[in-house]
Computed example of a mutant assay.
Amino acid sequence: MRGSFEYAYQLFTSYIEKVRPVDPNLVFDIQTKSCKDKRFIMYFWYFGPLIKTYKLLRPVIVIDKTFLKGRYRETLLTTIAIDPSNHIFPLAFLVTDSETIKSWTYFLEMFWSNFHGYDTQFVVISDRNPKIINDVSKVFLFVIHMFCAFHILNNIKTTLESMMIACRMAAEALSCIDFDKYMNTI
């Protein structure tokens, strides 16, 4: 919370090393650009107790991303589940410099390799991001992949709103060229 971003990122690996004696099942993996260059490309982690409680959660995993603010503007990929009391339960995290097919593949493979041993079939919910759609079918072979209704609803609203604007612009067009231009956008 205080200090520079550089200092905070330098402390991250030492923070993980301080957590490890308390949580020996902590999984942490960091990918760097090279052995000499200690700048990370991405790092994955989840806390050990999650493996034990994962069996008690509903068999629905939600995967999504968010953009971190600040100087470096990384992307945070997350998996969450819902417990029986309808509370959000974060499972695993990956911080990466950008959302790419490589980062999604790495994240989903790390998640699967650590959480798959429980012989439970589950549903994966995500937005309709093509990077996620392709990776889910490759990494999770026997899961049902559904799309988030919230994202679909927002896409429909945006599409309908832009279509309504285009229809109004076409109706108010003063020339055939403008009318055709607006109708072609619909």
Rank of each mutant, 00 (worst) to 15 (best):
I132Q: 10
R168I: 07
F107W: 02
D29N: 14
L26W: 11
R58Q: 10
G117E: 04
R73I: 08
L91I: 15
D127S: 04
S113E: 14
N129D: 15
F28L: 09
L91K: 02
I88Y: 01
K38F: 08
F47W: 08
P90K: 04
I88H: 03
V19G: 01
T100S: 12
I125D: 01
I101H: 13
M1Q: 03
E161H: 13
Y15D: 09
I63R: 09
E172W: 07
I82T: 13
I16C: 04
I80C: 10
I30Y: 05
I186D: 03
F44C: 09
L57D: 07
L94S: 11
Q121D: 13
I133G: 00
L76V: 05
Y54P: 00
M1G: 11
I61Q: 07
V139H: 04
K181E: 07
I144T: 13
I186H: 04
V60Y: 05
E172N: 15
T100E: 03
F47C: 07
Q121I: 03
P59V: 01
D127K: 02
D23L: 08
Y43V: 12
Q10L: 08
C176R: 12
Y106H: 12
L57V: 06
M1W: 03
T75F: 05
R168T: 11
M183G: 00
D23C: 10
T53H: 11
F93V: 01
F140H: 02
V136S: 03
